[in-house]
């Protein structure tokens, strides 16, 4: 014990602790405020990102192999289900096209430029995931050079999965909506209820037990039903309008019985993400 806590070692430990807390505080502050990390950090991350591809690409290839075999086994059943949906889809698509054209014409007539709904997608592949219990975070292979900016929403498959938290030159970190930390989960979303009444709100937390996004503090009296679709509302910041988030799963009173709490079933599977798109508002 004498050897463990000699005064020299104690000083080293204390100095290390102070540096550690200092660095942690600074990096959290940078993460919350500035749009990009410091130049050295960015540079390092880019180099590590490049090296990571050497390992990540073959590993992802192996996974692809397994997934394809699994898909092959499910194909027949899936085919049956999809066939029934195809007719519906074609109809919706045609209608969508017609509406889009009409919308464009109307906008031109009214002299309205881009509205909140317009967005473009930057497609990116997932390189790796943070090996940590606390940060639900993935690293994607597009960064500043491709036009990604901090706080942009990220979509995978059917719906929203998270936001860009840190941008480097050629890769960026995406915090998933399943992250329960206080400084994430602030999306402006809306639900169109019965009689096309719109309920606006923000994502306040995430229930990891049931895999539900929670939209809290709703005082609106509009009637919501299970299965109503939830999209981003485009209010505040860089998130465009009309990105699909999920469907209403449950409506409950909040702890004090004053406001409502809506549980939303996310559309995207947060534990199986390979390709994502970053939505950029036009």
């Amino acid at each position: 014990m004498q050897k463990f806590f000699s005064s020299r070692k104690l000083v080293i430990v204390i100095v290390c602790l102070i540096i550690s807390f200092g660095l942690m505080t600074v990096s959290v502050a940078i993460r919350n405020k500035r749009s990009t990390p410091t130049l050295i950090q960015q540079f390092g991350n880019d180099i590590v990102g490049f090296a990571d591809r050497i390992v990540a690409v073959p590993m992802n290839g192996v996974q692809h192999g397994f997934v394809s075999v699994k898909n092959l086994l499910n194909t027949y059943q899936e085919n049956q289900q999809l066939k029934s949906k195809v007719d519906q889809l074609a109809q919706t698509q045609v209608k969508d096209q017609a509406l889009q054209r009409e919308n464009k014409q109307l906008k031109r007539q009214l002299n309205v430029g881009n509205t909140l709904t317009g967005y473009e997608k930057i497609n990116a592949a997932v390189i790796t995931r943070t090996p940590s219990s606390w940060a639900s975070q993935i690293v994607i292979n597009k960064g500043q050079a491709a036009g990604v900016k901090k706080d942009m929403p990220v979509v995978a498959g059917p719906g929203l999965i998270g936001t860009v938290a840190e941008v480097n030159k050629t890769n960026s970190k995406v915090v998933l909506i399943s992250n329960t930390a206080e400084n994430s989960n602030r999306f402006a979303i809306q639900i169109v209820g019965a009689n096309s009444k719109v309920v606006n709100g923000i994502i306040t937390s995430y229930d990891s037990q049931a895999n539900r996004i929670i939209m809290g503090n709703i005082t609106s009296t509009a009637k919501l039903t299970k299965g109503d679709r939830v999209t981003t509302s485009g209010l505040g910041g860089v998130i465009p309008k009309g990105i699909y988030v999920g469907t209403v799963a449950k409506i409950a009173e909040d702890d004090y019985g004053l406001a409502k709490k809506v549980y939303i079933k996310p559309a995207a599977n947060l534990n199986d993400i390979e390709i994502v798109s970053v939505a950029v508002r036009e």
Partner: peptide
């Protein structure tokens, strides 16, 4: 060392459905 470092992330990504299944989280180190 470098390969082990990158494998940590790759394994977390590929097996995320198993490793981070609620309520348990297993992290490879």
């Amino acid at each position: 060392q470098l390969i082990a470092f990158f494998l940590d992330g790759s394994i977390s990504q590929i097996l995320s459905g198993i490793l981070f299944k609620y309520p348990n989280t297993m992290v490879p180190y």
